[in-house]
Write a protein that binds this DNA or RNA. Structure first.
Lengths: 217, 217
DNA sequence: TAGATTGTTAATCGATTAACAATC
DNA sequence: TAGATTGTTAATCGATTAACAATC
């Protein structure tokens, strides 16, 4: 009896979904039919309790005494993460990072369709980017009004991101994949932000390495 | 009376340090001398309580009735995050993502020194990468034994990361900046892992956008 | 049936927030 | 001194873990 109560899936659970999906995908490929929460927990380095609690957020489809059907689990997670219309996506900033991310989006991301890329540098505008041609960011408003993209990928400096964010919100962007240092806050209702702060990530790694306990001699 | 009790800084606090640093840096540049926890909280979108709790983890240097001295705060955060010897760092995987990350490391990361880059593709080996020449990953062991790098950046496929991780641990790598889909677990004592799972990030963004509450009409 | 494992409730743990005495 | 703001303890909140009855 699936009780698809999605509004109640908490953020920590949502963040774990892709990992569950990857693991279940692999089990499926290996031809495994059934898996228990404790087996999954061992593979993930977590607890069986957490696995069961998480799976119960999006519908109880385990079988007592047996475990979970891998194929069913796979289909549920796939539906949850990747079903429905592709999300039309624009890229803002086609520098080194922007180009890499656009390649990633095209080759490895499911459910997103890159429909346009923008930059403000004369040297970038008009260049090819995969199937696309880089457009002048001055034309961004017109483009969005016409094509209504839902997701924006920001690969621009902090300052530009701060300036552009309100405009993009007004143009109806519902999801931001933000690589700028600007701390884009998801304060508008119905808007989602995924911040990827590479600088913060490497800084906190540095802190931890420097301050790691010296291994007891 | 600074009570540099670093071992007690919890992970959530560590993750916030770079953000505090960026903000305090900006305040300093704007010539602001003093700031209260509530002012900081407003700028960060958090609570004054959290700011004070966090700052107290690494030494109480506020002044009652006045607030925090921006310059002192800046110097403390800088010391905490970036002081000490630079961390010798190797890059494994010089594909599109690896090259981008190496550029980022060279231009925007503080406290890290990229000392070598490795790949296994004949077409990559010998190519220039900034000041470096891409080395054959077959020579990685010898290199590490000789130069003892502390940090490894993994821009390789999941499978390769899974194979290489134990070797790197044995060679004394203390910090991993992991961009592969392999879920590198920091189970060895004194070893830190920062996972940057771009695929998971974009997948969870997709989930959230698709399942966002429709704005109440 | 007996054994196993789920679904789900209860207990624990840790992080965040609130409150307030100390003190500048 | 009076007002403001910290440092720190206490209360709350939410996530994780444990426990166990339901059931395959």
């Amino acid at each position: 009896m699936p009780n698809q109560n999605q509004n109640k899936i908490s953020l920590p659970v949502i963040k774990r979904l892709p990992r569950y999906f990857r693991l279940v995908h692999e089990l499926k490929d290996r031809g495994i039919n059934t898996v228990s929460s404790s087996e999954l927990a061992a593979l993930l380095g977590t607890t069986a309790s957490q696995v069961r609690q998480d799976f119960n957020c999006f519908g109880g489809f385990g079988q007592q005494g047996v475990g979970y059907n891998v194929d069913l689990l796979f289909r549920e997670l796939e539906k949850l993460l990747y079903s429905g219309r592709e999300l039309d996506t624009i890229l803002v900033g086609t520098g080194r990072l922007g180009r890499t991310i656009s390649g990633f989006l095209a080759s490895e991301a499911t459910g997103f369709r890159l429909v346009a890329a923008f930059d403000n540098a004369p040297g970038e505008i008009g260049r090819a980017l995969g199937q696309l041609t880089v457009l002048d960011v001055a034309t961004l408003q017109d483009f969005c009004k016409k094509h209504k993209p839902q997701v924006a990928v920001l690969c621009i400096p902090e300052q530009s991101a701060a300036e552009l964010a309100p405009t993009l919100l007004q143009l109806g962007i519902k999801g931001f994949w933000n690589f700028s240092n600007y701390d884009l806050a998801a304060d508008s209702p119905g808007v989602t932000v995924e911040n990827v702060h590479l600088g913060d990530s490497i800084s906190s790694l540095g802190f931890q390495v420097r301050n790691a306990e010296a291994p007891r001699a």
